[in-house]
Amino acid sequence: MYNVLVVDDDKEIVGAIEIYLKKEGYNILKAYNGNQALKIVQENEIHLLILDIMMPEKDGIETLEEIRENKSIPVILLSAKSEDYDKIGGLNSGADDYITKPFNPLELIARVNSNLRRYVSLGSLENKNNSKIYQTGELVINDETKIATVDGKKVKLTATEFNILKFLLENKGKVYSIPEIYENVWREEGFGAENIIAVHIRHIREKIEINPKEPKYLKVIWGVGYKIENIN
């Protein structure tokens, strides 16, 4: 049983999150401002923190920075501020993830699971030496068993999707345009198949990403191509 601390000055939001996460089997602790949160973090063993930014007295960023002075628990920021610079600022202050309000409950749950899994089972990766295994972050594919997993969960991919993902993962960090992907995966020049590749990639994204619109692994560089982010 993992302890999750939810901090938000809006009690209803804390209540809703509590309901969702309790269903997932987490033990929920609640705080309504930064100071309460700090106190609970000091007194209890907390495995994950969901933290609102805009709060009276002590805001989320200040709270986060104080927690980071001696704790490395995963912290997910939850804020109505949705600008890029808000997200960048939050992540740079030490947050592990950033979710904007209003949020999709399923996404919140997925992100909580993902962050916890990484925190708890950090460094316990198996078969790292196997040459048939390709990996970035928590995305792993095994070319022998043709199995892809994200955060340890199996993802169902079609053969084409698997091949495209394998190609991009083999060359992680590099950007490939649609024709390049076609030539490398099918080993022939593709005419008129551009849209099909784009659709496949969207499907892969929908399967492996928590939020396909803000992908973590399979990034779309609009007007250039696609790439798998190289995450250690």
């Binding site: 649609i178 849209n195 496949h200 969207r202 609009w222 007007g223 250039v224």
Partner: peptide, 25 residues
């Protein structure tokens, strides 16, 4: 940016929704 690539990518993103409405690109 490559405009052709962008259009292909965008069509890929909207393929399902376009097909839902029976729209042909």
């Amino acid at each position: 940016i490559n405009l052709k690539e962008l259009i292909h990518q965008s069509i890929g993103e909207f393929k399902d929704r376009l097909e839902e409405k029976n729209l042909k690109i």
